[in-house]
Every structure is written in structure tokens, then in C-alpha cells.
Design a protein around this nucleic acid. Structure first.
Lengths: 152, 152
DNA sequence: ATTGAAATGTAGGGGAT
DNA sequence: ATCCCCTACATTTCAAT
């Protein structure tokens, strides 16, 4: 575990708000030189606090107008079942996120489809064919808001 | 809706895989000049296909070891209820994502907490106090995998 | 007071936009 | 042409001795 001081947190907060700004622009805001800012960012990356920079795409503009969250219960839950399921699901490109969870369901999947017809095809021919799938619950995404979340 | 050709899709695929690479490096891979690559990227941004670049943080390294997905049903679902709920939830910093959904639940929330004790506090004093909250379902995140998702 | 570690600043080259 | 990333090197700060 790494120690984060006030300046590190300020940098993280600023970059979460706008990941495109340069180290020099950020340094000016925080009263720090460009190399000092850059070195702190790199240290945060090396420490694994910053895990990456991700491109955000508009799924609708790409022709995927439907996003569905699926809760999945496995019928049988041995170690092999989990591995089989995870291996099989990696072959479905429409699955954007696989979350292994504990609670009412075993997995949560974020699935995109061109439209509802396309989604039915994915659900019936792909999701339902996954090994060990038991109960499935679906929720259609209407809108989504991402918040910065707590830093320190 | 914008028309995307094969090159646009190749650019998007490459940038989704690695959002840090420069336009020139990307152009070399795709057999395109650097300015041509850069103009295409900017065009994709202006068209709203690329909506932004987001910093990915490791919540655990920030001291938030627990992530929970909450499904929320509202007790009353008029227009005012939705607005009240969304306004109230924006005051809870531990809520990272608010998804308005259609199906078994009305909202899905991604919530981070320092530990289970901290989560209980957030659940009882914050989430359960939200206006109009009915049924709540919880799933604890064990692990998560993000996949590139389909482009074309 | 002195030393050593850590972080900062200035300056400059190389590359990208 | 401008801006940014990145390294090198000298300087400062601060804690511990």
C-alpha cells in the first residue's frame, strides 16, 4: 500500500475530472512544476493507483442502441463451473464487462446489442448456451451517470 | 449518425486497447500519416463517437476495499419521484455510478466503501434514507473484467 | 550540526500536434 | 511554430542522528 499525500489526491481529483489535461497545465493549477507533476503521475501509475486511461465511446453512435445488464446465477458452483463459465463468456464480443459477484447472483454482465432483436439473438444463442447457467435477470439501461467517486 | 469506414474502426479498436498511444505511433501501425490519423481522431471526437478519456483508478489502493452493486426499486414511481431520487443521490460521494434502468429494478448503483462496516453506515444512513426507496438488493464485487466490446 | 533520503526546480533535447 | 514528454543535474527540505 502506497502513501498518498494531499498533492497526490489533488492530482487524482483533477485527472478524474479531466484526463486529457497535460502535466504542465495541471502543474500550473496546483502550483507545481511540470516535471514534479509528471513524476507524481508516473509514480501513481507504477504504484498501481492509476490502472490505465480508457477511451469512452458512445455505443449508440457505433450502432449499438441497446445496453442490458444481466444478473446470472449458476446452476452448479464448483471451481470448475466458474472457470468454464468465464472461459466461455470471453468468446462473446457483445459482453463488455464481466463482474464476479457475491450475493443474489454469481455474475453481472454488461451486454450491448444493435437493437432488441439483436439482443434476443445474443441472449438465446449465446448467453443461455453458456455452461452452467441457471437463473437470469435482465435490466435495460435507460441512462447512466458516472460520478468522480471518493479519492481520500 | 456518422459514417465510419474501416480505418475509423481500426483507429477506435487500437485506441480502446491502448488510449495512451500517439497519433503518429497509431498511424505507423495502420499505414497512415500522422496528420491524417490525428484528423480522424479529432473528427471522431467532434462527432461524439469518442465522448472522452477517463482515468481508471484502483479503488482498493485508495483505501476503498469494498465495492457493492445495489439494485433499487422505488416505492412510488412518478416523474417527481425519479427527480427527487436522482437529486438526493448526487449528494452521496460513495456512489460512483447511477444507472437508470428498466426491468426488475429502477436503478442500479455502484457504491464503494472502506470496508463492510463503512458500507453498513452508507447503506443505513444514506441509501435507505433516499426518498422513495423501496426494495434494495445487494451484490458484492469479487472481481471484474472489462473487455473491449464490439466496434463495428 | 550533519548526513541522507525524497521531492522540487531549471534547463534542454526529442517528438508530437 | 508550439506544446508536451522526459531526462539530467543542482538545490532544497526535513527527519534522524
Amino acid at each position: 500500500m502506497i502513501e498518498l499525500d494531499t498533492m497526490d489526491r489533488a492530482i487524482l481529483r483533477a485527472l478524474v475530472a479531466d484526463a486529457t489535461q497535460s502535466a504542465s497545465a495541471l502543474g500550473r493549477k496546483l502550483g507545481l512544476s511540470q516535471p514534479a507533476t509528471w513524476r507524481r503521475i508516473r509514480r501513481l501509475e507504477e504504484a498501481g493507483v492509476i490502472t490505465g486511461r480508457r477511451l469512452e465511446l458512445d455505443a449508440e453512435k457505433l450502432g449499438f442502441g441497446v445496453t442490458v445488464f444481466l444478473g446470472v446465477k449458476l446452476a452448479t458452483k464448483g471451481r470448475v463451473s466458474l472457470e468454464d463459465f468465464e472461459r466461455a463468456i470471453s468468446a462473446i464480443p457483445e459482453v463488455q464487462t464481466v463482474e464476479h459477484i457475491l450475493g443474489v447472483f454469481d455474475y453481472r454482465l454488461r451486454v450491448v446489442a444493435r437493437d432488441i432483436t439483436d439482443f434476443e439473438r445474443i441472449l438465446r444463442r449465446r448467453i443461455m448456451m453458456l455452461p452452467g447457467v441457471g437463473d437470469v435477470e435482465a435490466n435495460v439501461l435507460l441512462s447512466e451517470e458516472r460520478r468522480p467517486g471518493p479519492i481520500g
